[in-house]
Design a protein around this nucleic acid. Structure first.
Lengths: 215, 215
DNA sequence: TCATTTCCTGACCGTATGGTCAAGGTGAAG
DNA sequence: CTTCACCTTGACCATACGGTCAGGAAATGA
């Protein structure tokens, strides 16, 4: 098996570019369609149209609708995990949780579709990503609870239940993506402006940090 | 047309009971199926099976899938509006917002399916209940903002942005229904116990009320 | 008993969907 | 140029879906 090492070591040529570009376009279209119609309501034809490809071409890159969906869901999960690094190298809750709120609010603005797909997946009982919940998410959660508990022990914040604090952080930040349409309607039908997003982030941070006694 | 007044004044007999009971069973089954599969993923056959009726019978009581869905969505909205009365006859934020959180958390526990259907509907752009958002919900929101602003003016709480406070209340309380599966997974696969629900309610109330400077 | 209204349901239909396939196109390597 | 791996796609298929309908059952009132 000495040849294995070079299997995917073709120098990046047009072929590779085509594949990468098409997969990217399909995933982007799929994320939007799955978010707007749900898994059951989404059709491969619609995704194909939005990606500008014939439907049969989708099945060349992604064997089934489920495969495509799985890739979309995994993506937002990884983005969120990256954002979670804000939490780690922080001396206290003001910096750590503040940065985490900032990061999650930014993602809610830049990746609203992914957030909705994740929400939909969990609401339907997580048929596809149950293993993520039980392994990666659970481990991440326990780790963060430890950090929060340490801050409590160091009297950098009030002794709140860390678990419910995390739920509040997830709920509040993701609400701006998942319920973006409702928020937009209550904003006179217009999307939040840059200024309004800053106001939202500041409000959330202020209420949460005061709520846990960190400020 | 003098007879019109008595059209629906038949004394409650078996006929009426049959209709009422079947509609109830169908709506209950539909709420569960729509919540677990989304509108697109739900099938009339599945709803019929769960209600214990032949599919054709569903179409006798509800003309189309959309009609049935509309009824399910309206129901949770009315339940939430009822709960909102907690807000009104309260002297200050501790009582008003405290009772509102209690009420919404109770609904998240007793009507998780309805909450999910609402969330799904809004995430998909509110194709069916857009008018509710623009009329009833907007009016309700403005009213509550006025109440909160009065409390701020009376220095019963910190001057937070009332709108984002409402979003936080909605997000946090509904999270326990919409993401109930995720919470259950992080709870070792077991649903929250009575004690854990009390803990959740207490945590949310404590963090929110301290967050707005009401305690 | 008879007439009338309401309720029930198996069988059926047109359509749309996920997925398949065979035939052909295309660019890079030798 | 030839070869070969990769890419493209129109046409097609089986299935499942929402919805219809005709005919019968059951309850009600006279």
């Amino acid at each position: 098996m000495t040849g294995d090492a070079q299997i995917s070591r073709l120098k990046p040529g047009r072929r590779t570019d085509i594949r990468r570009e098409n997969e990217r376009a399909i995933l982007e279209a799929a994320e939007k369609v799955f978010a707007e119609a749900g898994f059951g309501g989404a059709t491969m034809q619609l995704i194909a149209d939005m990606a500008g490809l014939p439907k049969a071409n989708l099945h060349y890159y992604f064997a089934t609708k489920e495969d495509l969906y799985r890739r979309v869901v995994s993506r937002i999960f990884e983005i969120w995990l990256d954002a979670a690094s804000s939490f780690d190298d922080a001396p206290g809750p003001v910096e750590g949780i503040g940065a985490y709120i900032d990061a999650k609010m930014d993602i809610s603005r830049t990746h609203p579709h992914g957030s909705k797909v994740w929400a939909s997946e969990v609401m339907h009982g997580a048929p596809v990503i149950q293993d993520y919940l039980e392994t990666t998410l659970r481990a991440w959660t326990e780790g963060r609870i430890t950090v929060i508990q340490r801050w409590i022990d160091e009297e950098k914040m009030q002794p709140v239940n860390p678990r419910h604090l995390l739920y509040m952080l997830w709920a509040t930040t993701q609400h701006y993506a998942d319920f973006g349409h409702q928020i937009q309607t209550l904003n006179g039908g217009k999307p939040l402006s840059d200024k309004q997003w800053r106001e939202a982030k500041a409000s959330v941070k202020e209420m949460v940090l005061r709520g846990i006694g960190a400020i």
